[in-house]
Design a protein around this nucleic acid. Structure first.
Lengths: 242, 242
DNA sequence: GGTCAATAGATTTTCGAAAATCTATTTGAT
DNA sequence: ATCAAATAGATTTTCGAAAATCTATTGACC
């Protein structure tokens, strides 16, 4: 029942539960709006209150968790409005990061991008066999590919912002997959995008990236509208007295 | 010696120490790179370890604090490189937010902007009398003015990013003021910027904003280069044994 | 029946001490 | 003298219980 990722014991419990919680939220093993009771999390992750609350505070700053004074934490709510806001902002941020990256990228960047694409396309094939069981691996390769695109942008600040928005978007994607199955086979899209990037066709790459995000938005928004029940009022109330 | 802001007791200690710490870091009452020992902070803010560590974790996500595993927290380091990265990113973000805000802003937005400018210009006058003693008040009005500019941008995500970057920049400004005194009298700059915004002269407002940030960057970068000693190696070592 | 205060249980928040880890210094061997 | 292991003190990290707060329900009163 508890999360799978066994962490190397060289980390502090704090760091360990932070990455586990983040992962559980992004993949919607912890559903949007779900209450995060300290006692329940203590049991789930097997540790005391301190590291858990510390991790939750950090995730609050990242926007994955919300805290109401004296009422505790819950997973951030999802909504059409914030999905659209998120994706709109993502497009702007990635546009800038991509432009900078194409201006600065050298041979190393090109090599890493090619590598990331290769891993992603392989992973896609594997997934087609295993259905959507281990799509966690795909998700990681997918994230890596998009990170590789902007890796040469030269701005740690911009990259950090981009990564955070990508994570938030990933949560919506996970939610969509849960109700409607895998989004679509977009190996082609990624390949096009990579080619434009490697050829330094800046405006084309930016436009492809924008379309890539917009297509995801449409798909996710649709399944969010359809599967309204999911994610709304999920374990919203307090534990019933026996 | 401890921070002045007396917090209303309706907040949790956690929320209280969070805002105090954030303020102390942004104003450089806690200097860049200064170690943040839990015991010292316990004394400074008068509470136990839990709320303090929770606040520190949150500030780490905001980029004001850095955590090294098993070695504790310290105020984030400052550097020419990260200053330039920060300002460059700020320009891009504020450009987008400003554009959206000028597209969407209604009468309410205009009124609030005028009000914010009025308070800022009044505050500037008061400050000229009291030297740089209570420049904290000016800093607040200044932040409010820039927030008012983009308040109609319609994107909570973009506004949150902008606010965070502004805070980070404010820390550099505070550092600069500490060594070189008040930056400059930029009432005129703010007035120009407001007028362009109210007249919906989008490109002009964006350019003025860019110049506003660039001028600040130049000034701050210069005093950072000059006063190298400040902020470097400040209480960097471990407490000496008696 | 409806409203409001009192109560009890659940939950969050906070504390202070214990455990784990790091760092500087001393000690001992080569 | 040099290096490495051992030690001691400082510091971080974690725990579990106590205090504070919230929420649902009961019961009194109109």
């Amino acid at each position: 029942m508890s999360s799978s990722l066994a962490k190397s014991n060289s980390q502090t419990l704090n760091a360990s539960v932070l990455s586990q919680l983040r992962s559980d939220i992004i993949t919607c093993r912890l559903m949007p709006n779900e209450r995060l009771r300290v006692e329940a999390l203590r049991e789930r992750y097997g540790m005391g209150t301190s590291p858990i609350r510390e991790a939750l505070m950090r995730l609050e700053a990242e926007g994955l968790v919300e805290l109401e004074q004296n009422k505790g934490f819950r997973v951030s709510e999802v909504s059409q409005a914030s999905l659209r806001d998120l994706m709109r902002t993502r497009i702007e941020i990635e546009t800038i990061a991509l432009r900078w990256s194409l201006e600065n990228g050298g041979v190393e960047w090109e090599a890493n991008l090619l590598g990331a694409f290769h891993r992603l396309s392989r992973q896609t094939k594997i997934d087609r066999v295993n259905s959507d069981a281990i799509s966690g691996a795909w998700s990681r390769e997918h994230a890596d590919f998009h990170a590789a695109l902007v890796a040469a942008c030269g701005s740690p600040t911009m990259m950090a912002i981009r990564a955070r928005l990508f994570e938030q978007a990933d949560r919506y994607v996970a939610l969509s997959i849960m109700s409607n199955g895998p989004l679509r086979d977009d190996v082609g899209e990624h390949k096009q995008l990579m080619r434009a990037a490697l050829n330094r066709e800046v405006e084309k790459a930016i436009e492809l990236n924008r379309l890539h995000i917009m297509r995801t938005l449409d798909k996710v928004a649709a399944s969010l509208a359809a599967g309204k029940a999911i994610g709304e009022n999920h374990m919203t109330g307090r534990k019933r007295t026996p």
